[in-house]
Simulated scan of single mutants.
Amino acid sequence: MELRDEQPTAHEIGNRRYLIAPVEPLDVDGVRTVQVGTGLFLLAFLGLLPFYGRLEEDGHTWLLWMCLSGVGLGLLGVEYCRRRRRFRVERDA
């Protein structure tokens, strides 16, 4: 959807009025978003690693492995988003 100057700055739906903010779109290819999420999973994994013994005693080792799988899936997601971005750039050129 392209925003043009002739579009209204407010929409009325029912009894409500919605204003449209003049902001630029965010990261549309998702690479940075997936990288940040992968990094957070990695930090959580590294933060839980010293507590492996306690996690094992309490039966919560799944938290550690969930973080590790989040890192693995995140790396796949980063590669997917990079390929998608490359394809879009080539298609638009």
Rank of each mutant, 00 (worst) to 15 (best):
G37Y: 02
R84T: 06
N15W: 02
L49E: 14
R88F: 08
G14W: 01
E6I: 11
V71I: 11
A44K: 11
L68P: 00
C81E: 07
E56K: 15
H11I: 11
R4H: 12
F51K: 09
G72E: 02
H60M: 02
P22T: 07
T38Y: 02
V89W: 06
L26P: 07
T9C: 04
R88N: 09
R86I: 04
E57V: 01
Q7I: 02
E12Y: 03
E2R: 15
H11F: 15
L64M: 13
D58K: 09
R32K: 14
E90L: 15
T33V: 12
T38V: 04
C81P: 00
E2F: 09
L26I: 10
V78E: 13
G30R: 11
G14E: 03
V36Q: 10
D27A: 13
L68E: 00
V36D: 02
R91G: 00
A21W: 04
E90K: 15
V28S: 12
F45R: 03
L49M: 13
Y18F: 07
R54E: 08
Y18H: 12
Y52P: 00
E6D: 15
A10G: 00
V78L: 05
L43F: 06
L48K: 09
P50N: 08
Y52K: 10
L76Y: 14
I20F: 08
G37M: 13
F87N: 05
V31I: 10
G37F: 00
R17C: 04
E24W: 04
P25L: 07
G47V: 02
D29V: 01
N15C: 04
P25H: 03
E56G: 02
V78F: 11
R85A: 12
Q7F: 14
L63Q: 14
I20E: 05
P22H: 10
R85E: 06
F87C: 01
I20G: 00
R82G: 00
C81W: 09
D92M: 11
V23M: 09
L73Q: 06
M1N: 10
Y18T: 08
D92I: 12
I13M: 12
Q35S: 08
R54G: 01
F45K: 09
L73V: 09
L76G: 09
E24G: 03
L68Q: 01
L68S: 02
V23L: 14
R16E: 10
G72L: 15
V89I: 15
I13D: 03
F51W: 13
C81K: 15
L43Q: 12
C81Q: 13
A93Q: 05
G59Y: 07
A21V: 14
V78N: 06
H60Q: 06
A10Q: 10
G47Q: 08
C67I: 01
M1Y: 08
R54N: 03
V23R: 07
L73H: 01
D29W: 02
V31D: 04
T61V: 12
E57W: 03
G72R: 03
R84I: 03
M1C: 09
G30M: 07
L68M: 13
V36R: 14
L48C: 06
E56T: 09
L55T: 06
N15Y: 05
R82V: 11
D27F: 01
